[in-house]
Design a protein around this nucleic acid. Structure first.
Length: 770
DNA sequence: GATTTTACGTA
DNA sequence: CGTACGTAAAATCT
């Protein structure tokens, strides 16, 4: 093995430290000349750093067998070095002391460990630290270039970290932290802060499962106050004092604009437990970050690392909760001017304002909850158990022994060893990936054709999934389930996501993936009915307008406002698609041909491949290829829309949806990136449309009607039976919107259904034309 | 006990 | 080689 020495000018201000030499480094005797080196060079140039002006080193100086750094450690977690590595770390120490660069950049976890003794590159990257190896030496860690090669999304973070390193290379000092954190205030001091704070105030809560344990406040990045309310389960203050504390918080929330990081949690908690709601929500830094950097992580620690120049504080969470809480508040208020500038520069003020307006609705919907029919749940649970027992009996008879069918390992052994069925492999994302044996649905479906057991396993899985995820749910003492709607939950933006509520952890958590047959458990409040309103063919309409497919656009326009029965009879786009494909009149299209049309339209809008189409239609690969070719031949507008999207990506990797929401696509250049991009505008625009409509309906009529459920392109509202007609009319007023696209005006129609139970609703056949 | 993998539900 | 999500249970790591 070749010894690879440190190279570069002795007067360099920046020293880059990697992990160990690889194959090319070993051959040439120079650091970072292989694939990782190429990536490093291009990333450095994006950051405005000239590699030739940097010292470049590695922690280990010889290539380890199989390029595995573990070779130089006693333990798998790479914290106990063998003597060889200890020697090299000492060599690195001597070199740093000799050259004294203004900053040492640790590339990856091994360099981070060698220079600072820390483990966990994701927690420490982007923060300026003092080296423990060389006292007084400034260090900044980031990902290893090879990690960026594997996960291309890390490139942006790497470049931002390098720009910070470039700034810090101008001087050797570690910035002095002059911030003051008051974590043991007296009652009077805390109240004085609440009553005298000026301007926007950041508020951050720490909580046990149910109660607030610390309140952190900051109006100035250099000062934060944090007061403890709970020590374990014991109150820190007499009841009278705690009331005084919350009254002070209430006065503050009345008087001052409030800033939070994730108000969907903090503001919901404040309202639910203490009936405090900030009168003026100035900024949710999570939403602000979502609007300007939807493609990047958004946790406070990450945002601070790329926007601010403060020391890392997240590790305090396990040591000093008060200090942690205070620093959260200080970091939050420090982010405000930076995010304001970013929003302005990106021209995203209207998108930010829109997301801020949605906070109240999202919080309301979380706390409101959905009623559950617990008797139905119990009946369904029994049915599931019954079915599972039957299936298990059959399976034991067929397999000769008991098996845990939830365990992929055991099912693999059963199918491919005991039964000797042909191995099925997972579809790979790229040819370089290793082929992996799978027992997923597709594999079992294929195997079901040659053996009865895979089919039984599939049946069993479906029932087990239904039971564990959707039927076996706990309800609140009020008999309800709750979900947390996350406005910043999707990296695309526009759509909300839905997850388990921390405040009211009842039900299945995500309420946006309840299957049809489990929806029968959910009911409108007693004496009310659900009204479901869903956008008709929403994404397909958007795609038609983006393609400027005038025939389809005319079909959507002509059928607008029609009763669904008439639309289905005369303006069925899937039957139309089939008639074009098979070159036959629309009324001669058979149901089978219609299905082909429907599947192909959906698949082609988002550039699915022949394998998927073959799978979906149950045809051979070559038949699927022929169908796809025919579809694209008849729909050349779709292809040219796809090409236009690629063109836009080439320009600046940025797409803008129908409401002006921006998204940058940072992934590796290729088909996968294109497919993400094709999906972006339709998906995010429909999400924005629904949320804009739901919010405006809530603002106008939220006191009369309850907005209960959000399903990406549909909302469910509860109303008294005698007010259904009025509610439907008002919902339609808010949901029908004219949206400009390509010099045309797009309108997406809305269908309605009504019922006491979510799973049992009747479609209304209303004619909205004059 | 925390994190990752496998599998699968929705729009 | 549709996209976007979140969760349960098993597997794996520490």
């Amino acid at each position: 093995m070749t010894f690879v020495p440190t190279e570069g000018p002795p007067t360099a201000n920046i020293m880059l430290v990697g992990e160990a030499p690889g194959k090319e480094e070993d051959m040439t005797g120079r650091p970072f000349v292989g694939r990782a080196g190429k990536t490093l060079n291009s990333l450095l140039s994006y950051a405005g750093i000239n590699r030739a002006e940097c010292l470049i080193a590695n922690v280990a100086r010889e290539r380890p067998p199989a390029n595995d750094i573990k070779y130089y450690f006693h333990d798998a977690s790479c914290t106990k070095p063998k003597s060889q590595l200890v020697e090299w770390v000492n060599l690195l120490k001597e070199e740093i002391e000799q050259y004294r660069p203004n900053i040492v950049v640790a590339l990856g976890r091994t360099a981070l460990w060698a220079l600072t003794g820390k483990t966990g590159i994701a927690s420490y990257r982007g923060y300026v630290m003092e080296s423990t190896l060389v006292k007084g030496q400034k260090v900044l860690a980031t990902y290893h270039p090879q990690a960026v090669n594997y996960e291309w999304e890390l490139a942006t973070t790497f470049i931002l970290d390098m720009r910070k390193a470039l700034y810090h290379s101008k001087f050797p000092q570690i910035p002095e932290d002059k911030r003051v954190f008051q974590t043991r205030p007296t009652l009077q001091e805390f109240m004085d802060f609440c009553d005298s704070a000026k301007g926007p105030v950041a508020l951050d809560l720490e909580a046990t499962k149910t109660h607030v344990s610390w309140i952190g406040l900051s109006a100035d990045p250099n000062f934060a106050i944090s007061i403890q309310l709970l020590d374990g389960k014991y109150p820190k203050w007499p009841e009278r004092d705690e009331i005084a504390i919350w009254s002070a918080v209430a006065r503050l929330c009345e008087r001052c604009p409030i800033v939070m990081h994730n108000a969907v949690y903090d503001a919901a908690m404040l309202w639910y437990r203490y009936h405090i709601f900030p009168r003026k929500m100035y900024m949710d830094t999570l939403l602000a970050a979502h609007v300007v950097w939807p493609e990047l992580p958004r946790d406070l620690g990450y945002l601070a690392s790329i926007c601010l120049d403060i020391p890392v504080w997240k590790p305090y969470s396990s040591r000093d909760m008060g200090l942690y809480n205070a620093q959260d508040a200080a970091a939050t208020i420090a982010l405000v001017p930076i995010l304001e500038r970013e929003i302005r520069n990106a021209g995203q003020q209207h998108i930010f304002d829109m997301e801020m307006r949605q906070l109240e609705l999202a919080i309301y919907m979380q706390l409101r909850g959905i009623d559950v029919d617990t008797q139905k749940r119990d009946t369904l649970l029994k049915e599931c158990d019954e079915k599972l027992r039957e299936l298990d009996e059959k399976l034991v008879a067929a397999c000769g022994r008991e098996i845990n069918f939830n365990s992929p390992d055991q099912v693999k052994r059963l199918l491919y060893v005991d039964l000797g069925l042909p191995l099925q492999f997972k579809r790979r994302k790229s040819k370089e990936q290793e082929r992996k044996v799978t027992t997923d649905e597709q594999a079992l479906k294929r195997l079901a054709k040659v053996h009865p057991v895979p089919g039984l396993i599939l049946e069993r899985r479906a029932v087990a999934k239904k039971k564990s995820s959707f039927v076996d749910i706990t309800v609140s003492p009020e008999g309800k389930v709750h979900t947390c709607y996350n406005i910043a939950g999707t990296s695309f933006g526009g759509r909300w996501s839905s997850s388990k509520s921390i405040i009211l952890p009842y039900g299945s958590g995500n309420l946006q993936n309840i299957p049809e047959d489990a929806r029968v458990l959910y009911r409108a409040p007693k004496g009310k009915v659900f009204i479901g309103a869903d956008y008709v063919q929403a994404e397909a309409v958007v795609v038609a307008y983006l393609c400027l497919d005038t025939v389809l656009m005319k079909m959507f326009k002509d059928s607008f406002g029609m009763p669904p029965s008439l639309r289905k009879k005369n303006y069925d786009i899937h039957r139309y698609t089939a008639s074009i494909m098979y070159e036959i009149p629309v009324d001669e299209v058979t149901p089978a041909q219609r299905r082909v049309g429907k599947t192909l339209r959906h698949a082609c809008n988002y550039a699915a491949g022949p394998a998927t189409v073959a799978e979906r239609l149950g045809v051979t690969l070559s038949q699927a290829r022929a169908l796809l070719d025919r579809y694209y031949e008849k729909n050349h507008l779709l292809k040219s829309w796809h090409m236009r999207i690629q063109q836009q990506l080439r320009q600046n990797r940025t797409l803008i949806n129908l409401f002006g929401r921006r998204h940058r696509f940072l992934g590796r250049w290729g088909d996968a990136l294109f497919r993400e991009a094709y999906a972006y505008i339709p998906q995010s625009s429909v999400g924005d449309l629904l949320n804009i409509s739901a919010e405006s309906f809530y603002q106008a009529h939220g006191s009369e009607f309850d907005v209960c459920i959000q399903l990406h392109d549909a909302i469910y509202v509860a109303a008294e039976p005698e007010r259904v007609d009025r509610c439907i009319r008002l919902m339609r007023e808010h949901m029908i919107r004219e949206i400009p696209v390509n010099n045309e005006t797009m309108i997406i129609d809305v269908d309605f259904k009504v019922g006491e139970y979510w799973g049992d609703m009747e479609e209304l056949d209303i004619d909205w034309r004059q």
